[in-house]
Amino acid sequence: MRSPPWPALSRWRRWRRGWLWLLLVALFALVRWSKGAGFADAYAVLTRPFWPGSAQREWIQSGVQLEQQSKLRWLEKDNQRLRDLLDLVQSSSGVDELSAAVISRTPQGWWQQLELGKGRLHGIQPGDAVLGPGGLLGRIQSVTPITSRVRLLTSPGSQVGVWIPRTQRHGLLIGMGSRRPQMHFLDKDPQVFAGDVVSISPSSSLLPANVPVGVIQSVDYHALPAPRAAVQLIAAPEAIDWVQVQIRS
């Protein structure tokens, strides 16, 4: 057997090959430790042209919406069952919703009202709640056979009982003619802040319970006899072409 001509060179090659393998293992360990960083990023960059388009995103969003609607339906049923147990007078089971087109609107001015394209013949009665996307808009003031007039929450003379779900404090939402109605609290210390949501009281027998109305914009704690708050309504009557009327059966 012949010995290599340069034994030192051979040792050096073996030692270098070992270090290379060691570096490779360390690299993989790093990838493992960083949960795939580098690999996943490279994959994302390379496959970006093949990502699902907007159509698939809408499809997923509609799926999520459907899931939320079914959850909401389930919660409403549960809420109804609990309200029945508590013997609360008006419940959502006795209420039908009817879509109606807005045929005339004067959200500003001396009278703040909407004119709807459905009336007494369709089952609408004075006092029915009118809802827009986002929450309560107002109540039916008068009806003709095929039209009905809505008094908006901002209109002077409009008074609706509301509460703050977070603090469970009740108050009266009074239309002042301006875009923001005022909430007059019944307590001296309502413990509310700007940003709190205002909704119809769950014990309301005239309007649908727990319907959102607006958001507190500012609170005047020094008002007498009790604090007042300016409320920004969620549903904007200026931009609504169709509304939902809750008909009491």
């Binding site: 001396w110 002077p156 003379g157 003619g177 301006s178």
Partner: peptide, 28 residues
Amino acid sequence: LGLSLWLQMVWLDFANSFQIQEAWGWHT
């Protein structure tokens, strides 16, 4: 016309006469 409407509103809603202080009537 506007003044007559505004005065009627203030008169009819005398209990809530704080509306007089509101700028809404003058603005409209």
